Lab assay of single mutants.
Amino acid sequence: NQASVVANQLIPINTALALVMMRSEVVTPVGIPAEDIPRLVSMQVNRAVPLGTTLMPDMVKGYA
């Protein structure tokens, strides 16, 4: 199964993503693939992302 990017902490709106904020986990539904974690670093989220939430492409500015 494909691992997705999951929030490792609460990520406030407009926060630039850092490695420590993300982990990979096999979840349903599938979100952003875990292999894209390096690409996500320094991109901003466009909403608050609670701990344990799967990151979806529409949550990250400039990802989709």
Rank of each mutant, 00 (worst) to 15 (best):
P29N: 04
M43G: 03
E35Y: 14
I32Q: 00
M56G: 04
S42F: 09
A3N: 08
R23S: 10
N1Q: 15
T28N: 12
S42K: 13
A7M: 05
V6Y: 02
V27Q: 04
I13G: 11
P57T: 06
I32T: 01
D58Q: 10
L10Y: 15
V27G: 03
A18W: 06
P29A: 04
D58R: 07
G31M: 02
P38Q: 15
V20F: 14
V41G: 02
D36A: 09
L51G: 13
A64V: 13
P50I: 08
P38Y: 15
S42Q: 08
V41Y: 04
Q44D: 04
T28F: 14
S42Y: 11
A3S: 09
D58G: 09
P29V: 07
P50H: 11
E35A: 15
V5L: 03
L10H: 15
Q9I: 15
N8K: 11
A7Y: 03
T54K: 04
T15R: 06
D58L: 08
I32Y: 01
M43W: 07
A48N: 14
K61H: 13
N1F: 14
M43Q: 08
A48C: 07
E35N: 15
A48D: 14
V6G: 00
V30Y: 13
Q44P: 07
I11L: 06
L40M: 05
I32R: 01
T53H: 12
V6S: 01
M43P: 01
M22T: 01
N14E: 08
R47T: 12
Q44S: 12
S4R: 00
Q44H: 14
T28Q: 12
P38I: 09
L51C: 06
L55W: 00
P29E: 05
A7K: 01
V20L: 14
T28E: 11
M22E: 02
A18D: 11
E35I: 12
M56C: 05
N46R: 10
G52A: 05
N46F: 07
M21E: 02
A64K: 05
M59L: 05
S4F: 02
V60Y: 00
R47F: 07
P33Q: 06
K61R: 14
G62P: 04
I32P: 01
V45I: 07
V27N: 03
A7Q: 02
V49Q: 02
D58I: 09
E25F: 07
A48L: 15
R39S: 13
P12F: 05
M59W: 12
N1L: 15
R47C: 06
G52Q: 03
Q2T: 12
L10C: 06
P38N: 09
T53S: 12
M22F: 06
M21R: 00
L51I: 15
L17A: 00
